[in-house]
Amino acid sequence: MYKKLTAELLGTFILVFAGTGAIMINDIAQAIGHVGIALTFGFVIVALIYSFAHVSGAHFNPAVTLAFWSMGEFNKRNVIPYIAAQVTGAVLASLCLLFLLSENFSNVSEVSYLGATIPSGSVSQSFGFELILTFILMIVICSSAVHGKATKDFAGLAIGLTVGLESMFAGPITGASMNPARSIGPAIVSGNLEHLWVYIVATCLGAMLASMVFLRVFKSDN
């Protein structure tokens, strides 16, 4: 079990370090751009899935863990340890970025609160976007990595491309979290917790709704 938890902690650390690090460095140097940030999130997910899927299942996302549990694809005894490892990895990544880049800014607001996900419009708008974005992501995960007839060798590519695509078009509106841990890490370390609940509740609801749709509509074709 310790190998699985280590993989989840390390994988989530790398995801948040690379993704939110790209946001922070773009704020500092204006050298990456929105498309570059979206591609960073997509590319790192592809790399992490192919690196750790055989160890832990490559969740790196509490919403995914909860959705797999709700589907009966994950042991309920491992849910809390997995989520704890994921959140710990995210917080450690944000702490590392704060330490490494602190000389480049005087206030965390200058670097998007360490790459936190913050609504650019109304809270309801971001809630709706995050629910739908995570629903789409979880449907892709289930259809490419869980379905019995899926070509699972390409699951990492399908999931990573989905993350990159959704980050590219929805990032400017919501931050395109799709992942509570990815939002919790920067929020806790930066101290900006104002809208954090949106990125926890909406993403978990979206993932679990997708798992229900998959079970009722698609899995019967296994």
Rank of each mutant, 00 (worst) to 15 (best):
A67G: 03
F68V: 12
F68K: 08
S70D: 06
E73P: 00
F74I: 09
F74A: 05
F74W: 14
F74D: 11
N75P: 02
N75Y: 12
N75D: 15
K76T: 06
K76L: 08
R77C: 06
R77H: 14
N78K: 15
P81A: 04
Y82Q: 14
I83E: 03
I83Q: 11
I83P: 03
A84F: 15
V87Q: 04
T88S: 15
G89I: 01
G89W: 00
A90Q: 02
A90Y: 06
A90R: 06
V91W: 01
V91T: 04
V91K: 04
V91G: 01
A93S: 06
A93N: 05
S94L: 06
C96Q: 00
C96N: 04
L97P: 11
L98C: 01
L98N: 05
F99T: 09
L100E: 07
L100I: 11
L101Y: 13
L101D: 09
S102G: 13
E103K: 15
E103Q: 15
N104Q: 15
N104Y: 15
F105V: 11
F105S: 09
F105T: 09
N107V: 09
N107Q: 15
N107I: 09
E110D: 13
E110H: 10
E110G: 11
V111L: 03
S112M: 00
L114P: 01
G115S: 12
I118D: 00
I118K: 07
P119R: 04
G121Y: 00
G121K: 06
G121R: 03
S122G: 09
V123T: 14
V123Q: 08
S124V: 14
S124A: 14
S124K: 10
S126V: 04
G128I: 04
F129Y: 15
F129D: 07
E130V: 11
E130W: 11
L131A: 08
L131I: 10
I132S: 11
I132T: 15
L133A: 14
T134G: 14
I136N: 12
I136P: 12
I136A: 13
I136K: 14
L137E: 09
L137Q: 10
I139V: 10
V140K: 04
I141E: 13
C142D: 10
C142K: 08
S143G: 04
S143N: 08
S143M: 11
S144C: 05
A145P: 05
H147L: 11
H147W: 10
G148F: 12
G148T: 09
K149F: 10
A150N: 02
K152H: 05
F154E: 02
A155N: 01
G156I: 08
A158S: 13
I159Y: 10
I159L: 08
I159F: 09
I159E: 05
L161I: 10
T162S: 04
V163T: 09
V163H: 09
V163Y: 05
G164P: 01
L165S: 14
L165D: 04
L165A: 15
L165N: 03
E166H: 07
M168I: 13
F169P: 02
A170G: 15
A170F: 15
I173D: 02
I173L: 08
G175H: 07
S177W: 07
S177K: 06
S177R: 01
S177T: 06
P180I: 01
A181H: 05
S183A: 13
I184V: 08
I184C: 07
I184H: 01
G185L: 02
P186W: 07
P186E: 00
A187V: 13
I188L: 15
I188R: 06
